Simulated scan of single mutants.
Amino acid sequence: MVAKSLWMQKVAADPGHSQWYIERFRAMARAGDDLVGEARLVDAMVPRGAHILDAGCGPGRLGGYLAAAGHRVVGVDVDPALIEAAEQDHPGPQWLVGDLAELDLSARGITERFDVILSAGNVMTFLAPSTRGEVLTRLRAHLKDDGRAVIGFGTGRDYAFADFFDDASNAGLAPDLLLSTWDMRPFTDDSDFLVAILRPA
């Protein structure tokens, strides 16, 4: 039995949490806020028609943008309410309910590996800590040998960057480029956010 993610623990404690999260992003979209900076970075990394996995896709803001930009997108999230919102708000990608710690898309008929795997929105810090290494291993297994994983999260969320780098290395992923923001500012020792672009080691 895989440990329940911190996200699903929040949902269990507050059944309205998922809907609050969905409505928050819908309101931001209506207000014209920029919600797709992470996706623009990924879009710049690949040719049209790339195969992209949005790992921990939430209500679909990034996968939806990437699909509209001409990519073949699969989005996976553990929360069925978020997947339902993604299907409503961003038709086009293949949205799937699934736990990243048990990710096996071949069992769902998806055998082609991915050019890019995106995991934004602090997804890594919402995982059960005991599953973080396994999640990275499973992401690596779904990545093409010349593909890249793009993972972003902030400090203060009980996942030290050094521990993440160790987990990534153990999963067979090596840093290609380290940034401190989605608009590509350099990563330094005192950065409070990490955007790690990783390649298979």
Rank of each mutant, 00 (worst) to 15 (best):
Asp115Gln: 10
Glu112Arg: 12
Leu105Asp: 01
Ile117Asp: 00
Glu134Asn: 08
Gly98His: 03
Ala85Trp: 01
Pro59Gln: 07
His142Phe: 03
Ala27Asn: 14
Leu173Ile: 00
Thr111His: 15
Ala168Trp: 04
Arg40Ile: 09
Val36Glu: 10
Trp7Ala: 08
Thr181Leu: 01
Arg140Glu: 10
Asp43Tyr: 06
Ala120Gln: 03
Arg138Tyr: 06
Ser180Thr: 11
Gly172Ala: 10
Gly58Ile: 02
Ala27Asp: 14
Thr131Asn: 12
Ser106Asn: 05
Trp95Pro: 05
Val2Ala: 12
Asp104Gln: 12
Pro186Gly: 01
Glu87Trp: 00
Gly37Ser: 08
Lys4Ser: 10
Ala86Trp: 09
Gly98Arg: 06
Asp115Trp: 12
Phe114Glu: 07
Thr155Gln: 11
Val123Ala: 05
Ala81Glu: 14
Gly109Gln: 11
Arg61Trp: 04
Pro91Glu: 03
Arg132Ile: 06
Asp190Trp: 01
Gly49Thr: 07
Leu143Lys: 10
Gly147Trp: 11
Thr111Ser: 15
Met124Trp: 01
Gly172Lys: 03
His51Thr: 07
Leu118Ile: 06
Gly156Asn: 08
Leu6Arg: 15
Ala120Thr: 10
Glu38Trp: 01
Val78Glu: 06
Gly75Phe: 11
Lys10Gly: 04
Phe187Gln: 09
Val78Tyr: 02
Phe114Cys: 13
Ala55Pro: 00
Ala201Asn: 15
Thr131Ala: 15
Gly156Thr: 11
Phe126Asp: 02
Ala44Gly: 15
Gln9Phe: 01
Ala101Ile: 08
Thr155Cys: 10
Gln94Asp: 02
Gly133Phe: 04
Ala168Ser: 09
Phe187Lys: 06
Gly109Leu: 05
